[in-house]
Structures are given as structure tokens and as C-alpha cells.
């Protein structure tokens, strides 16, 4: 591919939002390239079971949904590059993307980079990453068969993943900073696990340190209601929220909100003409696969309109 080629559209990320957008653009014969630095399917690919995505009466495994989205986009000609976009420059009629595979130019860009797990930033967290500290239950849960785990967090993801992990563990301590903020369905399921003795919920609990002996995690040092307590575990799974993948936009002119999410207008256009944003990375997003997919479709149609407009 020639470095001077100006592609129709480049999408940054290949999560549900960009893959849905790519189905629409490619079906309109708009040449589409996606760059993905992690897993194709994004966060959906590492989610065990998705029960609220319309069209799947019995639910669907996240990885299966991701694979189907990928196949559907590729069926119409989307090209997925395994690499990262590290910087974007606006040159008016084209955008220059600095990628791990070199420079790429495109008339329009869709940013659908989602977000990454937030870290607790406590001693032991980085040191024992992958060796007792984890962020993906479907990836690493099986290593904790008949072991004790702590799950940190009180939102939908933490509760959902704690429930999932009970299929492996002997017991889970759910460490919640304030109170449970999960949906009613998840709260009910959690209560069932508590009644069965599989999960113990610790409210008003903050994590101070992950402690290991001979490089094996042995306990989590916490403060519960202001008192120091040690919770004995073999591993810790952390789900305390997400932070948007927007650092690479520094200097691009794309405006962010105070949380680092991308501001768009109602047509999903960012502050830079020709650069659009959709999915979890967008300010005001509802952080659901169905809405990320819907926004992807909207963005694709608005990109088509943008490409059809005469350029002055």
C-alpha cells in the first residue's frame, strides 16, 4: 500500500462499535480499514456471557459475539490491521494517522477506542499482575479452582464477574468501597450467592495493599469501617471502573470532557471535521454493547454523508 494513498475511512479500535460501523460503511462501498491493538471485539470479547444484547434470547458468549461481528464486517470487505494508532494529525481534507505499521492517510476517521480497566494503584498491584492480580475473569478465573479470591468493586462488572468466578472458587470476598451499584437482576443473583455462602460482601472497604509471601499472594490488606483488616485470598480480581483510551489524541484538536471522554455533536462528529467518535469512548455513552453498536451504525451513516459532501 502506497504511503500517499488516501483511504476513505480508518477506524481506530475494532470493538463492537467500530465493527458495527464497518458493516455499514463497507456495505456502502466505502473502503474501510480498522486498527486494533488488543482483542478484536474489544471488551465484549473478554466478557463471559452477554444477556442483554437484543436478538439472543438465551444470551451469547462475549467471545462468540465478537467473532460474529468480526466475520460480518470482513464479509463485506472491512480490513482489520493488528496494530495501534499512536497519533492523529488533521490536514483538512485528509487525516494523518501515525500507526505501529507506519503512516496512514484517510478522508474520515472514526474513533471507537473504548476504555481500559482502572488500576487501584496500591502496593503489590503491579508487582503481582498476572501472578495473583487480574482484570479478566474469563481469561484467568480457571487458575483459581477451589481457591479463595477477592473481587474488588461494586458496580455491574464487579458483581457480574464475581458471580461468574464462583464456578471455580471455594469462596469470594467482594470488597466494595461504598455500596453495591449493580442492576436489580445482578443484585438478586448476588444475594443468592451470598445465601449459598459462595460470596461474602464487605461494604465500606478500601484496599491498602496486596500482600504476597514467596511471590504468592496470601492476603489483601484493607480498611473496613476505618479498621485495618487482612482478607486471606489466593488471588484478586479488580473491576473498579474504566478509563477512556484517549491519550493518543493529544495534539489532535479533538476535544475531550473532564473525564477524558470525546465530546461529539448529535451526529457523532468531534470538534475536528472528518473525525467522528462512537461507543464507550464518547462523552455521554451508556457503556453497553447495544448502544455502542447503535452509535457505530449512526457514525457510519454520518461518515457517508460527510464523504459525499462537496469539499470547499
Amino acid at each position: 500500500m502506497n504511503e500517499d494513498t488516501i483511504h476513505d475511512v480508518i477506524m481506530v479500535g475494532a470493538g463492537p462499535s467500530a465493527l458495527a460501523a464497518a458493516v455499514y460503511t463497507t456495505r456502502e462501498d466505502i473502503e474501510t480499514i480498522l486498527f486494533e491493538k488488543g482483542a478484536i471485539g474489544g471488551l465484549a470479547a473478554i466478557t463471559d456471557q452477554v444477556d442483554n444484547y437484543p436478538g439472543f434470547a438465551e444470551g451469547v458468549a462475549g467471545l462468540k459475539l465478537a467473532e460474529q461481528l468480526e466475520k460480518q464486517a470482513e464479509r463485506f470487505g472491512a480490513k482489520i490491521e493488528l496494530g495501534s494508532v499512536d497519533k492523529i494529525e488533521d490536514h483538512g481534507e485528509y487525516k494523518l494517522l501515525h500507526t505501529s505499521d507506519g503512516p496512514f492517510k484517510a478522508k474520515a476517521v472514526l474513533i471507537a477506542t473504548g476504555s481500559d480497566y482502572k488500576k487501584m494503584n496500591v502496593p503489590g498491584e503491579e508487582e503481582y499482575y498476572g501472578r495473583g492480580v487480574h482484570y479478566c475473569a474469563t481469561c484467568d478465573g480457571a487458575f483459581y479452582r477451589d481457591k479463595r479470591l477477592a473481587v474488588v468493586g461494586g458496580g455491574n462488572s464487579a458483581v457480574q464477574e464475581a458471580i461468574f468466578l464462583t464456578r471455580f472458587t471455594s469462596h469470594i470476598d467482594l470488597l466494595v468501597r461504598s455500596t453495591i451499584r449493580a442492576s436489580d437482576v445482578l443484585k438478586k443473583e448476588l444475594q443468592r450467592m451470598v445465601d449459598e455462602g459462595k460470596i461474602t460482601v464487605h461494604l465500606a472497604t478500601t484496599v491498602d495493599e496486596i500482600v504476597a509471601v514467596d511471590k504468592k499472594v496470601t492476603h489483601v490488606a484493607v480498611h473496613q469501617d476505618g479498621q485495618p483488616v487482612n482478607v486471606e485470598v489466593d488471588g484478586v480480581f479488580v473491576f473498579i471502573g474504566l478509563s477512556p483510551n484517549t491519550a493518543f489524541l493529544e495534539g489532535s484538536g479533538v476535544e475531550l470532557d473532564e473525564l477524558g471522554l470525546i465530546k461529539t455533536d448529535i451526529e457523532l462528529h468531534t470538534s475536528v471535521r472528518g473525525i467522528f467518535a462512537s461507543g464507550d469512548v464518547r462523552s455521554g455513552a451508556t457503556m453497553q454493547i447495544a448502544s455502542a453498536v447503535g452509535e457505530g451504525a449512526t457514525a457510519a451513516l454520518k461518515i457517508r454523508e460527510y464523504l459525499e459532501q462537496p469539499k470547499e
Binding site: 488488543g38 482483542a39 478484536i40 471485539g41 470479547a45 473478554i46 463471559d48 458468549a61 467471545l63 465478537a66 467473532e67 493488528l82 474469563t138 481469561c139
Partner: peptide
């Protein structure tokens, strides 16, 4: 059920 495994193989 391992997205990273799929990616490495891909």
C-alpha cells in the same frame, strides 16, 4: 474462552 489466545493465534 480466551480472547488473547485467539489474537495470538491470529
Amino acid at each position: 474462552a480466551c480472547a488473547s489466545c485467539v489474537m495470538v493465534k491470529k
